[in-house]
Nucleic acid binder design. Structure first.
Lengths: 127, 127
DNA sequence: CCTGCAAGTTAGATTACACTAACATTATAG
DNA sequence: CTATAATGTTAGTGTAATCTAACTTGCAGG
């Protein structure tokens, strides 16, 4: 059940693929979303394919493998928890919260994320 | 008053120099603390010198400049706040908390850090 | 004082991740 | 159905950060 860790960069790519539906995703959308070149996306995808997280044929669209899906889901979940915590609890501005969540999500453990989730709930119920 | 951002790696070096007193610091201690080679430390120090954060003569010891001191202090402060939050509020194991704080400290804004600090105080006062 | 080891430096290799430019393929609009 | 635009790929480059190995310098014990 312990999820393997990947580089921040690769996790960002995974997360983006997931956000675009996890299958039939287009390279160019990833490039636009992450503000990187199409070449960089291609490069990253090859790493993800090597690691068994993504499948794709030459000139074909992108899909997450089961493992890739699992990893992506967890990252996005952390992202959402962090954003909620930053915005609703800490009163950080949404845009800044988005940026910070993007950084923190790659660092915190599943346990820490779940603890933050509990804390949010507790604090919100106090109002 | 807005502090410039540096790479995680360079911030780690700065933080370590600060932890060792901020002046008369030895390269080898930094290497041991960060588990990197002496060569890597040398390399990083040259970057920090270029950026005006550290001073040092050839074969001499290391000292933070005023700017370097300011930056380091802020990072270490974030580190401490995060550690306290993770351990005392979220009940993360100390070793894990240390690791996660090390990652998050490079990402969060001064504002977010100060908000976390307030939250810790509030929560602790409730007991 | 001098010598040997500890510490600092340099050179060169490696890896990851980004870029641009040029080229290949696919999709689409006339 | 073909020409062109959009997308995907490849090749080559750059930068940051790491490493090892070899070299230089400095200091502390004999």
């Amino acid at each position: 059940m312990k999820t393997k860790r990947y580089s921040e960069s690769l996790e960002d790519y995974l997360e983006t693929i997931y956000m675009y539906g996890g299958k039939d995703v287009k390279s160019v959308d990833i490039a636009n979303h992450l503000n990187v070149s199409r070449a960089s996306v291609n490069n990253a995808l090859n790493s993800l394919i090597d690691k068994g997280l993504v499948t794709k044929k030459l000139y074909g669209n992108i899909a997450l493998t089961d493992t890739g899906l699992e990893v992506s889901k967890k990252i996005l979940e952390k992202h959402e928890i962090l954003k909620e915590f930053l915005i609703d609890v800490l009163r950080v501005k949404p845009k800044q919260a988005e940026t910070e969540a993007c950084g923190i999500e790659h660092v915190i453990s599943d346990y820490t994320a779940s603890q933050i989730k509990k804390l949010i709930k507790k604090i919100k119920s106090e109002n």
